[in-house]
């Protein structure tokens, strides 16, 4: 595998027509604004890094926001079950970009709520891993690269989303959030999930990745008629049928597909509310 660590300098205007370039520039500006708000108003602050395409794009924009330096630690919630290509990518990027990475080893599956269906239980390990990071390192803010278009419960998120000490999300009583004024004052014991990518779509991320030359794990590109559209643990994530072997082909595929992005994620659909239960209890 070969992640491109020193991409050629490009700019959005060269990569796409004016309308697309303007759209991506607008999305990027919004994300950078949110990153800077978080850094100005919340400390200590960390960023979850799943090493997938979304959190790589987010990391890239953090480097832009802070002029090449990422001024907070990255946290990887590691279940030990990522695909080998993911670990290889991580180990190449971290020294090359001078990142402060903290790997959190998540507790075993046996410790999870036994009433959850199997794949959901496997995913819940990350919730527990995050909980112990927060309890130990006292982060007041954690940035997470989720998007509204990924999944219906994520569509309801705020950009600054406060969580109780146990990580629980009270979606019935979310703070008002308008005119880019975010909730940045919290009582003791509350932390905030910051979602700088909420307004991006899957195809936006790929277009941006292409324009900026952001490296991605090669598992996204089709081999033998299959590719990963969304990366998760190897035991609960599966590749989807696809011949898209380049970013351009992925973009072309997304223009016509009507299969949802998380189709290869078992945990989303074991029961009607499995993903909602995960999120209410603190999943990303």
């Amino acid at each position: 595998m070969a992640a491109t660590l020193a991409p050629e300098r490009t700019n959005l205007a060269d990569a796409f027509d004016d309308d697309t370039a303007a759209h991506l520039a607008e999305l990027e500006a919004r994300t950078i604004y949110i990153l800077r708000e978080a850094y100005a108003r919340v400390a200590p602050l960390g960023m979850l890094w799943s090493i997938g395409k979304d959190s790589n794009a987010l990391l890239w924009m953090a480097r832009k926001a802070f002029f090449g330096r990422v001024p907070f630690p990255l946290i990887q919630l590691d279940t030990g079950m990522e695909l080998p290509e993911v670990y290889a990518f991580r180990d190449e990027i971290v020294p090359a970009w001078g990142l402060d990475l903290r790997v959190e080893h998540c507790p075993p599956e046996e410790d999870m709520d036994p009433t959850l269906p199997p794949a959901t239980r496997a995913a819940a390990r990350k919730t527990e891993g995050l909980r112990s990071v927060l309890a130990r390192d006292k982060y007041r803010g954690v940035m997470v690269g989720i998007r509204r278009d990924e999944q219906a419960t994520r569509a309801k998120e705020r950009v600054f989303s406060p969580r109780a000490l146990d990580g629980a999300w009270d979606f019935r009583n979310q703070p008002p959030e308008f005119w880019d004024q975010y909730k940045t004052d919290f009582p003791e014991g509350v932390h905030v999930r910051i979602h700088p990518l909420l307004h991006w779509s899957e195809i936006d991320i790929w277009r941006y990745t292409k324009a900026e030359g952001i490296p991605v794990v090669p598992l996204y590109f089709a081999r033998d008629g299959k590719r990963y559209r969304s990366l998760g643990e190897k035991n609960i994530t599966f590749p989807v049928a696809s011949d898209a072997a380049t970013i351009d082909e992925i973009i072309a595929e997304l223009m016509v597909t009507r299969v949802s992005e998380r189709a290869g994620r078992t945990m989303d659909k074991e029961t009607e509310d499995s993903f909602e239960r995960l999120r209410s209890s603190g999943y990303m």
């Binding site: 509204r148 278009d149 219906a152 419960t153 569509a155 309801k156 979606f171 019935r172 979310q174 779509s201 009607e272 509310d273 909602e276």
Partner: peptide, 19 residues
């Protein structure tokens, strides 16, 4: 109305964004 709670109450509680 993606949330279980909303289906049961048949009221939209929060804002939802859809493309």
């Amino acid at each position: 109305d993606a949330f279980q709670a909303e289906r049961d109450q048949a009221i939209t509680i929060d804002t939802t964004q859809i493309n």
